[in-house]
Design a protein around this nucleic acid. Structure first.
Lengths: 209, 209
DNA sequence: TGTTGCCTTGACCGGATGGTCAAATCGACG
DNA sequence: CGTCGATTTGACCATCCGGTCAAGGCAACA
């Protein structure tokens, strides 16, 4: 996943490289241990540098965390962004679910990072949630409602439909231990089974009637 | 929610009362701040006693956390436990979803507590997940599969059906900030809307065809 | 080779935090 | 009341951790 946040004008090659190294290491550590559980020393070690050196590039632990979250946000919301009002409703919804499952499979650390932030009450992202996220969801909810009204999908609450897709896909990243405990370690098989199940659940559940 | 874990034989009235007070306070603090973020002082203050006094009743912070989690486990799994193989499939599934939504509404702290534990990789509950939880889910998955084979519900993977119900209901407790950010503060209205949506999604999605 | 400015780090600081301990207080019972 | 075990706590300790600082390394350029 890409991660360019701040404008990198005015930054030397070394600064760009080291900030990237730090952010990459931070994703590993924060997603594993949570904000409170992660230590600056851990992140520095994972980035293969000393703690004071890390703090030369970022003023604080929280600033690393914030840069990480905000840098990932666009990528994280891209799948919903791509939901196309002009496409075929069932195809669009199926594709959205597919993209979200792939995200849970390929970027579980990002998913857990956001889950952690939400559980904490989103102290860093709260503002973004009520502005950017809300606007995005409002827009796509309108698209879904239009499809409903046009009889192309069942008449359902579009907001809760979006929540259900989020929850049921991210579950495979956020609750990975639990899923593995129940299913046993199965390579990546569970993602295919989940995709098949969710596709049939949502497509049949949303079939206009 | 009830919470009796250890046998309370051999415990004085005061011991029972104070252990309960501590566990109740711990639920508040751990569910809000996570295991790492919670401090013994916070829990003691919430239980209205001194830190050494708390540590007179429990040997460590982790032991409080463990007693709390294990004490809630039975209650937490009760809704699935109640899924009745002899009932009408659609009615049973609808009732299960209803119970889970009520749990998310009425016991969000418990939901977030478990979510936190899962995100951490379930260091305390791992064993319980692979034994008790797995056996419970295996049993109920068999019930669901039988219903599938009897043509009473659609042919779907019963494990992923259970995961989807878990995820889509618990979402309203665990991601409460996000839900509120998108929907606005709406009293408890979102729970009714969610229940209605999920009922129609799952019942239509599982209708045998 | 000397100078300059960016980069790196060992050593350290202060506050937070989990846990201990000895002493004080309480309360049930003789 | 007096005794004794249960309960409670102020003071304390060791460690962890975020963050600072002064000094040292290093690369580019004159």
């Amino acid at each position: 996943m890409s991660n360019q946040n701040e404008p990198d004008h005015k930054r030397s090659r070394i600064q760009i490289r080291n900030r990237e190294k730090i952010i990459a290491a931070a994703l590993d550590v924060f997603s594993r241990d949570g904000f409170r559980g992660a230590t600056v020393d851990d992140i520095a070690a994972a980035a293969d540098m000393s703690k004071p050196n890390l703090l030369y590039y970022f003023p604080s632990k929280e600033s690393v965390y914030e840069a990480l979250l905000k840098g990932l946000l666009t990528d994280w919301l891209a799948p919903l962004q791509e939901l196309d009002a002009d496409g075929d409703p069932m195809v669009e919804i199926a594709a959205y679910i597919e993209r979200k499952i792939e995200l849970a499979r390929d970027y579980p650390r990002e998913s857990r990072l956001f889950a952690n932030e939400m559980l904490r009450g989103a102290p860093i992202l709260k503002d973004v949630l009520t502005s950017d996220l809300k606007h995005l969801v409002d827009g796509k909810a309108t698209v879904l409602r239009d499809w409903s009204n046009a009889g192309q999908i069942a008449k359902v609450d579009p907001y809760h439909l979006i929540f259900a897709i989020w929850a049921s896909t991210q579950h495979y990243a956020d609750f990975d231990v639990q899923v593995r405990a129940v299913l046993g370690d199965d390579g990546e098989g569970r993602f295919n089974d989940a995709a098949r199940f969710l596709r049939s659940l949502f497509l049949d559940g949303l079939r206009p009637r």
